[in-house]
Structures are given as structure tokens and as C-alpha cells.
């Protein structure tokens, strides 16, 4: 039987349809992110994600502007989920952070 893509991507009936993989893929494409780490904190329902994003495009932008950039890239996805926590770093910031920790 041919599989219906919409039902295949939606195993639980109340799943948001958003996955960590789909979010990461889109961020890499639209923001040219060199690193995207997404944690699904929802425990299965796909409603709560925490993201670490490293992109050249964050350079010289405030936290608010960085979040806006990410949020506009993921407009539809974020509308479908409950909680979204992006953490945005430039490549330099990310390197510094990794050295210090």
C-alpha cells in the first residue's frame, strides 16, 4: 500500500509534525548555519525544542535581531509548537565559548 506522507510523518495523532531534523535542515539552508543542534525537550509530542545555532549571519546583530532572523526562517514551524528556545552564536562566539568551557 502506498504510504501517505502526511500520516507517515505524524505517528502520534497530536504530534505537531515538527521534528528536530526538519528544523535543523531548514536552518542550515536559510541561515547558512555552520552548526545546528536541536534538542526535542517535549518528550515525544514535538511541541518543545531547544536549539543551538551558529551562523555567520548573526554577526553584529543583537540577540533580539538574531532571534527574529531564526523565527522568520521557521515561521510556520514555530506557529505549530508550544515552546521554542533558540540560542544564537556567531562562529567566533561559539569558538570562544568552547575554549572557555
Amino acid at each position: 500500500m502506498p504510504s501517505d506522507p502526511s500520516s507517515a510523518a505524524d505517528p502520534a495523532t497530536n504530534h505537531s509534525g515538527v521534528t528536530a531534523e526538519s528544523l535543523a535542515q531548514k536552518l542550515k539552508e536559510t541561515l547558512g548555519a555552520s552548526l545546528v543542534e536541536i534538542k526535542d525537550m517535549s518528550g515525544g509530542c514535538g511541541q518543545m525544542f531547544e536549539a543551538t545555532i551558529v551562523s555567520e549571519q548573526f554577526t553584529k546583530k543583537t540577540t533580539l535581531a538574531r532571534h527574529r532572523l531564526v523565527n522568520s526562517a521557521l515561521k510556520e514551524e514555530i506557529a505549530a509548537i508550544h515552546a521554542w528556545t533558540p540560542k544564537c552564536f556567531t562562529p567566533e562566539q561559539w569558538e570562544k565559548r568552547n575554549q572557555s568551557s
Binding site: 540577540t63 533580539l64 532571534h67 528556545t85 533558540p86 540560542k87
Partner: peptide, 10 residues
């Protein structure tokens, strides 16, 4: 507008 929860927290 200042920000959402993460921004306020940081």
C-alpha cells in the same frame, strides 16, 4: 518590545 522569555532570562 524587549523580548520573549529567553531574552529576558539572558
Amino acid at each position: 518590545f524587549v523580548g520573549g522569555a529567553d531574552i529576558v532570562m539572558s
